[in-house]
């Protein structure tokens, strides 16, 4: 059997694959963040809480309305996205003209409040949510056992990432959005309702977070702090990819998942910090991030 630095090759392949799966979550979450920052110039620190809300809404739908995973995948992003629209209309929209810092503080505060409310209602240890029967089970890949559900996550995340990229880069709405980021006054002068577009963009970014939350519910503990554990890493992903760069955040998300996965084999103690080491190196050499425009 071939060894790489004392690690058997099959184990290494397994870890690369698992890294890719975690990367799918990073990509999906950082995608929403990048969309929001790219279009609205708001650093959305509520993202982790909105991810968590997605998972909790899935649980509520199941336990109070009897609606299972597939319905949740559709409804939870809509419900949490609608909440995002309200949040943007009532609070965030007032801060566009101010420094980034205000948006950051507001969204950070709202995130803490949401987390606290959910914790008071449901406790901290979390709620059970099962893998849907259609996606349970595992494939034997020879070098490792691959749960069907994880394969599904990678697939769905890839589709969502590509779809978002297509919408923004290749459609008319996307071109309006990009134009509005460059010069909102001019786009408004052409008769495009820029404030409404901003609102819907924020709603869509939030819906992406909730979507990732539903995907995460069957495999991670559904608890109030599930978002805050992930969000710091996801912010690092966005910074490394280049703030606001959609392609950058997707590629970086998958890439860093792999880097983290490999660290878990060679030196597990550092797996929580390796992403920040990468971030420091990237910021020193390319301050705008790997795919960002300086």
């Amino acid at each position: 059997m071939d060894d790489f630095f004392g690690i058997p090759a099959p184990l290494l392949f397994g870890q690369l694959l698992l890294g890719l799966i975690n990367g799918a979550f990073y990509a999906l979450l950082s995608l929403g963040l990048a969309v929001i920052f790219g279009m609205l110039n708001v650093i959305n620190f509520t993202h982790g809480a909105q991810f968590m809300l997605g998972a909790f809404v899935a649980w509520l739908l199941l336990n109070f309305l009897g609606l299972g995973y597939w319905w949740a995948l559709l409804l939870a992003p809509l419900i949490v996205g609608a909440f995002g629209v309200v949040l943007e209309k009532t609070m965030i929209a007032r801060l566009y003209k101010l420094d980034h810092l205000y948006g950051l503080l507001l969204t950070f505060g709202v995130g803490l409040i949401i987390e606290g409310l959910v914790r008071n209602e449901f406790g901290s240890s979390g709620l059970p949510y099962r893998i849907p029967p259609e996606l349970s089970g595992a494939w034997d890949l020879g070098f490792m056992f691959m749960p069907v559900y994880r394969g599904w996550v990678v697939l769905v995340a890839l589709v969502a990432c590509i779809a978002t990229w297509l919408v923004i880069e290749k459609t008319k709405i996307g071109s309006y959005l990009r134009a509005a980021t460059e010069n909102p006054a001019l786009v408004q002068a052409f008769g495009v309702n820029v404030p409404r577009m901003m609102t819907l963009t924020y709603g869509a970014g939030v819906a992406l977070a909730a979507f990732a939350g539903v995907l995460a519910a069957p495999i991670y503990s559904v608890n109030p702090q599930m978002g805050s554990n992930l969000i710091i890493i996801v912010f690092a992903v966005v910074v490394i990819g280049g703030m606001g760069s959609i392609l950058g955040s997707v590629i970086t998300g998958f890439g860093l998942g792999i880097v983290e996965g490999l660290t878990k084999v060679f030196y597990p103690e550092a797996s929580a910090t390796v992403i920040f080491v990468v971030m420091a190196i990237v910021l020193l050499t390319r301050p705008a991030g790997l795919f960002g425009r300086a």
Binding site: L11, G14, Q15, L18, G19, I21, N22, M144, R150, Y220, S221, Q225, M226, N229, L230, G261, K264, V265, P268, E269, S271, A272, T273
Partner: peptide, 15 residues
């Protein structure tokens, strides 16, 4: 040795 707290244990479980 897993970082505290951790979300994903899949790598460690495969090890």
């Amino acid at each position: 040795r897993t970082p505290f707290p951790s979300t994903d244990f899949s790598s460690f479980l495969v090890q």
